[in-house]
Amino acid sequence: MKSGEEAEHFNVLNDLPNDSKFLQPYFAKLRQKAEKETLLRDHLDLSDVFLIRFLRARDFDVDLSLKLLINYHRWRKECPEISANLHSSTVLGLLQNNYHGVLRSRDASGSRVLIYRIGQWNPKDFTAYEVFRVSLITSELIVQETETQRNGLKAIFDLQGWCFTHALQINPYLAKKISAVLTDSFPLKVRGIHLLNEPILFHPVFAMIRPFLPDKIKQRVHMHGSSFTKSLCEHFPHTILPPEYGGTGESLEEVCQEWTRFIEQSEEYLHQLSTETAGETPSDP
């Protein structure tokens, strides 16, 4: 746990713009260390804009930021079935089925709020790897946002419709990969995970994932059950939540369709990420 002085120092750094002269020593130290790492030599993007994600995610601790940067590239390299093809076309059917969306407004702490509707995922049409690719695509898009780097994200998983065929898709290998992104392989802070309508069949799957999670993430998991309206509004302003979840914001359909359009509009950037994972030289944007 940070002392009050350390926390205040981080808050000052976190609030500075990317081009602040006070951040330059951190960029220089992280870049210098990264250039010495064999795994990172093929990844030439050590720009300030890229490195700031890892520094903010680890409270400007350069050594921890380097570890996160290494884990990020290792994870992408070791899990190509998820990360090698981030084109929107690979998951468009799932997105068009209103499976996933990102709320237009942030919560009171400035966190991005993501929604996943498991019942809209048909395991006969999409594997768990493709479903998880949706999360990776969204993460790669929102991590570009300075406010999200500073304030992290919270995710709402609506598990209504979860059944045995969903459970069969989650194996220990995938559970470990999912937990890695939540903990030490992606430069975003997970501020909360909220589960709605969780059925008995989901508990064994969560029990598979839980051991891989650090205590701080375990403490941020909230199970709301089927009577979630009151408890969910204790964590999120009702003005940003869809009416389906007790709020007065945009409907779930609007939220999902708007985010799907944004993903489609980001195809050029997603193509660049895909070619980088494949080891090619990305084209200029």
Rank of each mutant, 00 (worst) to 15 (best):
G4E: 08
G4M: 14
F10N: 15
N11S: 13
N11H: 13
L13C: 06
N14R: 15
Y26E: 02
K29L: 15
R31K: 10
A34Y: 05
A34W: 13
V49Y: 04
V62C: 01
L68D: 05
Y72M: 13
R74E: 15
W75D: 12
L86R: 01
L95G: 02
Y99A: 00
R104K: 07
R106S: 03
D107V: 03
A108V: 09
V113H: 03
L114C: 00
E130D: 04
E130P: 05
R133D: 00
S135P: 10
L153N: 08
I156E: 04
C163G: 14
F164L: 15
N171P: 00
P172Y: 11
L174N: 12
K176S: 07
A180E: 15
V181K: 14
T183F: 14
S185K: 13
K189N: 15
I193K: 09
I200R: 14
V205D: 10
P211Q: 03
I217V: 04
K218C: 13
K218D: 07
K218I: 13
V221Y: 02
V221A: 00
H224I: 01
L232R: 01
E244Q: 02
G247W: 12
S251W: 04
E254D: 14
E264H: 01
Y269A: 06
L270M: 01
H271K: 14
T281H: 15
P282V: 04
